[in-house]
Design a binder for these strands. Structure first.
Lengths: 192, 192
DNA sequence: CCGATTCTGTACCGGACGTTCCACAACCTA
DNA sequence: TAGGTTGTGGAACGTCCGGTACAGAATCGG
């Protein structure tokens, strides 16, 4: 067989994910990733093939450990009528909590959508798929809150809420207050 | 006196602005700017001091020639009741017109807000000021459309519309359809 | 026409980047 | 214990970056 790795792959990916989250793909340098993961370049390249390979693993970790858990009440089999309001509220808390990664850096994936790495169609597809997950969950939350509304009206509402959530995640880095107001606007729409 | 410049400064700034618009500050390399402007490094540095100086001139050109003209109906002395709807519609057209710079690259300034150059407080202030201009114009549009609404309600509406416009400008690069839906949501809110 | 001043092109600098190479250390199987 | 396989560290590579130095060309006032 040969020698076994001396590191915990999952922990390495989490550490790298936080670096990419904080700095973005391009500005996360290999020295940054080396010191954050405790691995040397060779080990990184041996385990992940390239900086991009490590980034892909970090994105998977981000989706599985960060975004999907918060979205779960909107993706479970039964969605409570107040699940959407609770989701918006918890996201608002995360975006206004001093020191939280989300407050400081927004969304790893949406940030990447504006960066050079988004030239890669695979990255764009990942971002689009993430937005679709968000939109689907919010759609189910709207349906649970307003079951008697016409489908077209539900769609309009869900679309507006999704756009406001995306807006909040995109602007939180540069204007946290605006992000909070954006989520408040979404909450107001969803409750009406 | 000495030798006179052989180039048209305004045209040079416009060319540089388009490069920054398309590629962002960091990814606009000096060779890119040289070929787009027709100037060599020496002339650029002589005229603008640094890459950053050229960027600042490009931002000014962007605000004066791109964003403010479209916003004008909302900043003029008298604002028509349908000025906001017209603004949203014209922005939607710009973001869906194949080949237009806005459709392909969104907003030069908002794109910069997520880039490393935004670490500079001056750049962040410029972005915030731009958002304030947008917010103020939309606020006047809301007031013209719904003069009898309570001020607090007008503010909520204007805030939501501004967030949806910002969201559209930020996501258009990666998902033009989502940008259009975001503006449609804003139009729906403003009309109601 | 002369000299000062200003613009412009070429070559170059130091530094950072992602990636690769190579020698060596560690572990498995036989 | 020997041989093959795999993980690890460190040095090196080629490339690109923004910025600068310098020499020459162009145009001014006198």
């Amino acid at each position: 067989m040969g020698r076994a790795p001396t590191f915990d792959a999952a922990a390495v990916v989490r550490a790298a994910r936080d670096v990419f989250w904080a700095h973005g793909y391009e500005e996360a340098s290999l020295p940054d990733l080396e010191s954050a993961t405790g691995l040397s370049r060779s080990s990184i390249y041996h385990a992940f093939g390239s900086k991009r390979g490590l980034f892909d693993a970090a994105v998977t970790s981000y989706l599985d450990d960060v975004t999907r858990p918060r979205l779960r009440p909107l993706t479970a089999e039964h969605v409570a009528p107040d699940a959407l309001a609770a989701y918006l509220s918890s996201l608002r808390d995360a975006l206004t909590a001093a020191g939280s990664p989300a407050a400081a850096h927004g969304c790893l994936l949406l940030n990447a959508s504006g960066a050079p790495v988004a030239h890669d169609p695979a990255v764009r597809a990942t971002v689009a798929a993430y937005r679709d997950e968000l939109r689907a969950g919010i759609g189910r939350g709207v349906a649970a809150r307003h079951p008697d509304l016409p489908a077209a009206e539900q769609d309009r509402l869900a679309e507006a809420c999704t756009a406001l959530v995306v807006a909040a995640l995109l602007v939180v880095r540069v204007d946290p207050d605006a992000a909070a107001r954006s989520l408040d606007a979404a909450t107001g729409l969803a409750a009406a």
